[in-house]
Design a protein around this nucleic acid. Structure first.
Length: 241
RNA sequence: ACUGCAGUACCAU
């Protein structure tokens, strides 16, 4: 089972989903029956490669076959619900995923996945509910909530969360800034975007990646600051892609 | 005992 599972993971991780699924079938013909780890690998592989409907079907199959879901199973299934806006199943998983009890660290990871899922489903009320229920929130959790609001077009609220997270002791990271810059981009907030971009390295000690630079080039370009966009492209410490 | 799965940019006017 370990051999086959490792093979399946390898194929998924190299973007070869069809082959991975073929080996998942073949292992069973060969007499190795997938355990929870094998199923988890397949669920996540499907969910991460645009096959979330399939992931949810396979989740049902897994249960039919009497394999008990664990934390990793729920994380993958929750992700698949977010990708397909399957809010009903998402709500069920929200209840089920706590069964059996989880460690505090796992609890936060699970809650973050739920916030992301509800955000993807457009249900910010639920997302906020899960967020509020956690006594302490780390950076990924704040990021997940922020992305939810920004996806709903609530740019101001999302940017407000940026201010709040620092006050509450969560340090913005590289992804926080990608999110914030993208919000400025969508909302056409050039000045604010530039402020954030500069504060990244100056105030937060995070060096902007090429993705951050590309956000800024996009933002400058859309705002009509074409020469500034060109200068940034030419001067950034990355090979333009 | 040990090996395989484990929470976040976005996605092209």
């Amino acid at each position: 089972i370990v051999s086959w599972s490792s093979l399946v993971v390898g194929y998924f991780e190299h973007g070869l989903s069809q082959e991975a699924l073929r080996f998942f079938e073949e292992m069973q013909v060969d007499g190795s029956f997938p355990d929870v780890i094998t199923w988890n690998a397949v669920l996540l592989g499907c969910a991460e490669h645009g096959e979330s409907e399939r992931a949810l079907m396979m989740y049902a199959q897994m249960l039919e076959q009497g394999v008990l879901p664990n934390t990793a199973t729920f994380l993958s299934a929750i992700k698949a619900c977010g990708n397909t806006s399957a809010l009903d199943l998402g709500n069920k998983l929200y209840v089920q995923c706590w069964q059996g009890g989880v460690s505090e660290e796992t609890e936060l990871i699970m809650a973050t996945a739920l916030v992301e899922m509800f955000g993807n489903c457009g249900s910010m009320t639920r997302a906020q509910q899960v967020f509020d229920a956690m006594q302490w929130k780390d950076t990924p959790m704040w990021n997940a909530l922020m992305r939810g609001y920004s996806r709903q077009g609530e740019s101001e609220h999302a940017l407000h969360l940026f201010e709040r997270m620092s006050k509450e002791g969560a340090h913005p990271d590289s992804i926080t800034f990608l999110c914030v810059l993208m919000i400025c981009n969508h909302a056409g907030l050039l000045d604010k975007g530039q402020e954030y971009f500069e504060s990244m390295s100056k105030a937060y000690g995070i060096s902007p990646s090429i993705k951050h630079h590309n956000c800024m080039i996009d933002l400058l370009g859309r705002a009509g600051h074409l020469n500034d966009a060109l200068i940034l492209l030419k001067r950034m410490p990355y090979q333009p892609n």
